[in-house]
Amino acid sequence: MTWVTKTLNSTLGRKLIMALTGLFLILFLTGHVSGNLLLFKGDGGQAFNMYAKFMTTNPAVKLLSYLTYISVIGHIVYSIFLTQHNKSARPVSYSTSNGSSNSAWSSRNMGVLGTIILIFLVVHLQGFWAKMHWGEIPMVTYEGEEYKNLYLIVSEAFKQVWLVALYVVSMIFLGFHLSHGFASAFQTLGLNHKKYSPAIKAVGMVYCILVPALFAAMPLYIHFTSYTK
């Protein structure tokens, strides 16, 4: 399989992996945000808890989740490879550089943005995902069936101002990461066409604002509704 390894080790091959994993993660985010919209339902978390159970037990979802883990790891590992390689391509740096005149800040700082998002991810997974999988979670019964009351965990957690702030700020970074990453992935895949590229860019812009905004709205909503209860 030399040609496969050769391709995957080439700069273009590595970029391909970044693009494919990135796009998969965009798909994941879409699913994640859609499902989590149930938090806004105002039914005391019933729909959300049922959804959470479905997501942790359904075999098809399981398979997707493994793909997501692989994508996250692949995206991170290859970004490290690429960053190393790119750094070594310019061993002596410029004393003055005026990058803002020729490119967007986010495009030049994907590594920094990605690292911040990674830190957030650790906090986020440890707080909810790990608890859901292995932690002690109070149970709740709907229509005779038992469910883990993840909603309770979530609503308790977001009573803390600092956590809400962390989530909101992180989503801003995610937005910037996506603002470059979305269209960039298509460019890497070679999907650049004067008919479609403007649409891809437009969808990317909407996506990078809408999705992080919805995510950020969740802790804010829960936090502020908690005062009214």
Partner: peptide
């Protein structure tokens, strides 16, 4: 040479 990160510079 380095890899492209599509900055457009």
């Amino acid at each position: 040479f380095g890899a492209c990160t599509n900055t457009g510079a």
